[in-house]
Simulated assay, not measured.
Amino acid sequence: MSAHIGLQAVFERFLPAYQRQHLLTPIQQKACWHIEQCRTEALGGLQQRCGQCGFEQPQYHSCRDRHCPQCQGQAQQAWCQQQLQAVLPVTYYHLVFTLPHTLNGWVELHPEVIYRCLFQSAWETLDHFGQDPKRLHGTLGMTAVLHTWGQNLSRHVHLHCLVAGGALTQAGDWHSSQSNYLFPVRALSRFFRGRMVSRLRHNAQCGELQRITRPAEIDTRLNELMQTDWVVYTKAYLNRADTVVQYLARYSRKTALSNGRIQQIDEDQVHLRYKDYRDHDRNKVMVLDGEELIRRFLWHILPAGFMRIRHYGFLANRCRRQKLAQIRQSLQAIAEQEIVGQAAINNQPITVPVIEKPRSCPQCKTGRMIVVGEIAPKRIDYG
């Protein structure tokens, strides 16, 4: 048993019993295997030695799996550094598009289809409002990140969207948004509901929801969804560059369960910290059977090759450089008054703080650890 309390320790204790009772998909097996091996001798690493006292310590490689809570810090920082070039001196809006929980069963059967429809419907909704001549009359720029979990690891599928507060017209001009909430929430919710239901109905007609086999379930469920209110959450605009970057960092590489939330591992149970949003965001502790925690975590393993971070509009990869240049040219006249963040006003570069691993010797506390050799990967039998 690992001395570290985290997801890896949960897998070490409870995963073998879980696998004896449940069949894992190849994608789930691969993710679990990576998490178990992460930063262990199974992946090899580097042998380090203190230049002062001679103390030696191995530093094992990470698995770099996108579901592993140990591997997201550096990936998050690197991604944010890449996205800084796309930050504009404008306000930003945070919107959340959430699927009704009645679709959770379909998500389990056809995750890739439902997730794809969610991305497409959210963008079509925002693009429709952005192109409206009575609103911004241009193309928006959106970065969307898929999350599939709630604080208790239940299935809660939603998109976090960061949208620049304005639109690029066909003439190359920039139309800034004047609203605190970009577009009316009620109108957004209704249009999003219609687009999502329409896409699901179309996919069903094309045979992409073939695992839903109960007679008339698709038509009945979609008709019921059209009779319920859907909610699109929107947060007031953000106008500081460091705030925008923090939002990018917060949602870009988040995993369903971080190691810091696991408080205690007992013989059969795991104590998990969570935030209760229905009780004034209070931090609480829930107790789950170890195998139940694993079952919930596996719900959030994404299909192979599925991109959970996507860019749309003038932020789409194929046209981002050209469109951003057009926008900056349009904003050039007011750039010195609305330059991105106070740091830029003072002619200081905007950076994301990088967390460096300590290189001092854990034994003598004064020496520096240096690499003296390479550790070959070692096969470990977890069965």
Results as ranks from 00 to 15, higher is better:
Phe306Cys: 12
Glu291Val: 11
Val340Asp: 11
Asp276His: 02
Arg310Leu: 14
Arg368Thr: 15
Thr98Glu: 00
Ala343Asn: 13
Gln131Ala: 08
Leu159Asp: 05
Pro26Trp: 02
Trp79Lys: 13
Tyr181Ser: 01
Ile301Gln: 08
Thr98Gly: 00
His94Phe: 01
Cys361His: 05
Val231Trp: 01
Ile327Gly: 00
Leu95Pro: 00
Gln83Phe: 09
Ala31Gln: 04
Cys206Thr: 08
Gly51Val: 15
Leu331Ala: 01
Gly194Ser: 02
Met196Asn: 02
Val197Phe: 01
Asp289Thr: 14
Asp279Tyr: 05
Trp230Tyr: 09
Asp219Ala: 09
Tyr382Glu: 10
Ala9Pro: 03
Leu159Cys: 02
Phe14Cys: 15
Val245Lys: 06
Gly341Asn: 01
Arg211Gly: 00
Cys68His: 03
His280Ile: 05
Gly141Glu: 09
His311Asn: 14
His4Pro: 04
Tyr93Cys: 03
Asn203Gly: 00
Cys80Ser: 13
Ile345Val: 12
Arg49Leu: 14
Trp123Ala: 02
Asn346Arg: 13
Cys63Tyr: 01
Leu46Lys: 14
Cys53Arg: 14
Thr148Asp: 02
Ile345Gly: 10
Leu302Tyr: 08
Ser258Trp: 06
Tyr237Val: 01
Val372Leu: 07
Asn317Trp: 04
Lys254His: 12
Ile294Thr: 09
Arg308Tyr: 06
Asp127Ala: 08
Gly166Lys: 05
Gly166Trp: 00
Asn239Pro: 00
Lys134Gly: 00
Glu12Ser: 02
Asp268Met: 12
His300Gly: 09
Leu153Cys: 03
Val185Ser: 06
Pro133Glu: 00
Asn259Pro: 10
Arg308Asp: 11
Met286Arg: 01
Tyr247Ser: 09
Gln363Ile: 11
Thr169Glu: 00
Ala164Leu: 10
Ile301His: 05
Gly367Trp: 13
Cys38Pro: 07
Thr98Ala: 03
Pro100Tyr: 03
Ser198Gln: 13
Cys53Ile: 13
Ala343Pro: 02
Arg193His: 11
Arg250Met: 11
Lys235Ser: 07
Ala216Tyr: 07
Arg20Leu: 14
His94Glu: 02
His4Gly: 09
Cys63Phe: 04
Trp123Arg: 07
Asn152Ala: 06
His101Met: 03
Arg195His: 05
Arg295Leu: 11
Val113Thr: 15
Phe97Lys: 01
Gly260Glu: 12
Pro26His: 06
Lys284Ala: 02
Ala164Arg: 10
Val340Arg: 07
Arg261Asn: 04
Gly54Asn: 15
Val270Met: 06
Ala236Thr: 12
Asn346Phe: 10
Ile5Leu: 15
Gln52Lys: 15
Glu217Ala: 09
Met1Thr: 13
Pro89Phe: 04
Thr351His: 15
Arg318Val: 08
Phe119Asn: 06
Gln151Val: 02
Asp281Arg: 07
Gln263Asn: 08
Leu225Asn: 03
Arg310Gly: 09
Leu43Cys: 07
Leu24Ile: 15
Ile218Glu: 06
Pro303Thr: 10
Trp299Val: 15
Asp229Cys: 11
Ser2Pro: 06
Ile380Arg: 05
Asp268Thr: 14
Arg64Asp: 09
Ile5Asp: 05
Val96Met: 03
Asp266Lys: 11
Arg318Glu: 12
His128Lys: 04
Arg320Trp: 03
Ser360His: 12
Gln59Tyr: 07
Ala204Met: 06
Ala344Asp: 12
Val90Trp: 01
Ile294Leu: 14
Pro89Thr: 06
Val244Leu: 08
